Amino acid sequence: MTIIELPKPVRAQAITSIQHYFEENMSEPIGELAAGLLLSFFIEEIGPVIYNHAISEAQTRLQQRVSDLNGELYADAFQYWPRLDARKRKNSR
Rank of each mutant, 00 (worst) to 15 (best):
A12T: 15
Y21L: 05
E32H: 14
F42Q: 11
P82G: 11
H20C: 05
N70K: 09
Y74A: 14
G71Y: 09
N52G: 04
I46E: 13
L84M: 15
S67H: 04
A77C: 03
S67T: 05
I46K: 11
T16Q: 13
T60V: 11
G31M: 01
I43E: 03
N91V: 09
F22Y: 11
F78Q: 08
I30R: 04
R93K: 06
I3D: 03
G47Q: 05
R87T: 09
Y80K: 03
P7L: 15
Q64H: 15
S92M: 07
R11V: 04
S56F: 07
H20Y: 08
N25F: 14
K90Q: 13
P29S: 11
K88H: 05
F42N: 09
N91D: 05
N70A: 13
E28P: 00
E24H: 02
I30L: 03
T60Q: 05
E28K: 03
I4W: 05
I46M: 11
T2R: 06
E23L: 12
N52K: 08
S67N: 13
H20E: 03
F41N: 05
A54W: 08
N70H: 11
T16E: 14
Q13N: 15
E44V: 06
N52M: 06
L62W: 12
D68L: 12
P9C: 14
A75H: 00
S56K: 05
L73D: 07
H20W: 01
S17C: 01
H53V: 02
S92E: 11
Q59V: 14
G71R: 06
A14D: 04
P48Y: 11
I15K: 06
P9D: 14
L73K: 04
L6D: 02
R61T: 13
L37Y: 12
E28Y: 08
N91P: 02
L38T: 03
Q63V: 07
A75Q: 04
N52P: 02
G71N: 12
L39R: 04
L69G: 02
S67F: 05
A58H: 00
E28W: 01
Q79D: 07
E32R: 08
P9L: 11
K90P: 03
Q59S: 08
I18K: 03
E32A: 09
E57S: 02
P29W: 00
E57R: 08
I55Q: 08
A86W: 04
E32I: 00
